[in-house]
Write a protein that binds this DNA or RNA. Structure first.
Lengths: 341, 341
DNA sequence: ACGTTTTCCGTAAACGTTTACGAGAACACA
DNA sequence: TGTGTTCTCGTAAACGTTTACGGAAAACGT
């Protein structure tokens, strides 16, 4: 079934070395024979065995993205990543790299899966998401000397790897500014664990802006939940039970906001009327909610493309003559004003 | 850096053959030496090179899932698949198989990517989703003799491959039954292209139930849109503009329903009050919407596990002594009654 | 003590590539 | 004609495994 380079060689009555050279575009092969090889390859439907090639070259020509059902997030998935992956895939393909997505089991935070990918050399590089403030995966990879890039920053690993993150700190501050400008003084924040770096950054921006406006930070207006609908649903009532309830709520992502709005509705509080709502990481979901949620929209597909470029530039084998460069970028979040605040 | 089987052998002063046999649990190796090999492997942090192993064995020990941003669905992703993949991954891992998710570019319906996976032998089997009524991917795979399984049925390929599907026909009929029992006679259906098999099945069930209740089928109450929020948003107004507007709407999935409800709200029509809403493929999104949407919930994670079993059973190399069996199953959809109908 | 079986291990080939090396042929130039 | 250069290709080794084969040593049975 599977035709190998030997079949091609036999068919053309030339050596496998020549076939390989012809296929790989090397200079030392006659233009005529090259053409014959190419024709035969098409005719016999030949394509190189990936294992054989990887083994010889010592590279798999593929990049792994570690996708993980977030802890506590058994039921709902991560639409967030799809456009990102689309961009990543497209850019990698331009360099002849395949993107493979490795599913982690829920809960183990990928350590085990990651080791497996690295140690069995299934990919030449990996891309991490859901970066934590202190991230053992990053420590592991830097220590192992394995190429990687991250979607999101971390304090781990120093500046030794490329990373692309969103400016959650500024978004948190901008959200507060906007709400204050609209007359709000009691502003709640619903966020995930501070381990997750974007939760940490968001809160930092929130507090900074509060301080700037001379508003005292009130721990009662902060609640921590799982970063999904159930999390938002569970913890939003907490901040509403404050002695001096908030008139506005900032949610750290769309799923939390949906769950939170549900809880509000059940308590007879109308989001957008009785309490203002802003979402930090907005997806199309927010747009189609009623009321349409004001939020900060990330440019996910361009981010995927950019991170691919950054990863490639950091790998000596790919960087070419210019040498490897570590690039780190923080992209702005664009505010989309809608009806909920 | 990477320690090979040769390093192990040299370190222990035995041959690589013995090391390999020890590692692979073959019988013809002394219990004592085996232990020494295992210890050394742990100490030297050895794990076999995947490319070398695949090359020799002629198998990659991995299964590919073809994930694709749906045509027209650039912005929003597919949360639907995450729990399914979790189950699939877990079950495959039990048999020592890796799951890799291959991203397709939007639009090309995967044909090209699929060829690539098959021809370069990157995986031993593939899993397909979004099955169409006539599915060229299935034709290609059966013709190539490549093992695969599908989430969803198709008319292509006969009974030559395992498939697991949901009973969309029954769900469509059940939805109609339920609405009729609640006094509705004008029931609209918002569905995707009939190419997509589940859209076809849904409509068949819908029509059958209508006939059973003696209600005439009205094409004005059917609308076709992209299977996402934008699709639902775009086409729902169409059915509402009917001369005799519907008092109930069945949406083919949650995303369409969200978009549809948005459109209704903007027209001053309250879902759950002014018009009843039922969703065929329900996700947690429906639960956290206001009003909470009545829908049919699939058991995604168990489905993933089951499809993995079915796939494994169909591959002679894995089926063991019992021989390969092709299993096809259709699972029921469980109605979750909530507030929208 | 001797033949037979069992246990254990080393040798070497094979999987499908890529590539360093060298050789023959053609060509150029004097 | 001789020498050097350029084209083109074949040979063979190497990547890291697994495994068929055979043989030495040990264990067993009489």
């Amino acid at each position: 079934m599977a035709s190998s380079i030997h079949d091609l060689a036999r068919h053309l009555n030339i050596s496998i070395g020549t076939v390989s050279r012809a296929l790989n575009g090397r200079a030392d092969v006659n233009a005529d024979t090259r053409q014959r090889v190419l024709d035969a390859a098409k005719k016999l439907n030949y394509s190189p065995n990936q294992s054989g090639r990887s083994l010889r070259r010592g590279a798999t020509h593929s990049v792994a993205f570690m996708l993980q059902p977030h802890p506590g997030d058994q039921e709902y998935g991560e639409p967030f990543f799809i456009p990102f992956l689309t961009g990543l895939q497209a850019k990698l393909a331009e360099s002849g790299l395949d993107l493979i997505v490795v599913m982690g089991a829920p809960g183990d935070y990928q350590q085990e899966r990651l080791r497996r990918v690295v140690e069995t050399r299934r990919a030449d590089a990996v891309v991490l998401a859901w970066t934590r403030r202190e991230d053992e995966r990053i420590d592991y990879l830097t220590q192992a000397g394995f190429p990687f890039a991250t979607l999101g920053r971390s304090r781990s690993g120093g500046d030794s790897y490329p990373s692309l993150d969103l400016d959650f700190e500024k978004a948190g501050a901008d959200a507060v500014d906007r709400l204050v400008a609209r007359g709000h003084r009691r502003i709640a924040a619903i966020r995930p664990s501070l381990d997750l770096n974007f939760g940490y950054l968001f809160l930092a921006g929130y507090r900074k802006a509060l301080r700037r406006h001379g508003i005292e930070f009130d721990p009662e207006l902060i609640a921590e939940g799982f970063i999904n609908e159930a999390g938002g649903y569970a913890v939003t009532p907490k901040v509403m039970r404050s002695k001096d309830p908030p008139t506005a709520i900032i949610f750290n992502n769309d799923a939390m906001a949906l769950g939170g709005c549900k809880a509000l509705a059940e308590a007879g509080i109308r989001p957008g009327h009785d309490v203002a709502v802003i979402v930090i990481v907005d997806t199309p979901l927010c747009r189609y909610f009623s009321p349409a949620l004001t939020g900060f929209r990330p440019a996910l597909e361009p981010m995927g493309e950019r991170l691919a470029e950054m990863l490639l530039a950091s790998i000596p084998a790919f960087a070419g003559t210019e040498g490897a460069r570590i690039i780190r970028e923080v992209w702005p979040l664009e505010l989309i004003a809608r009806d909920s605040d």
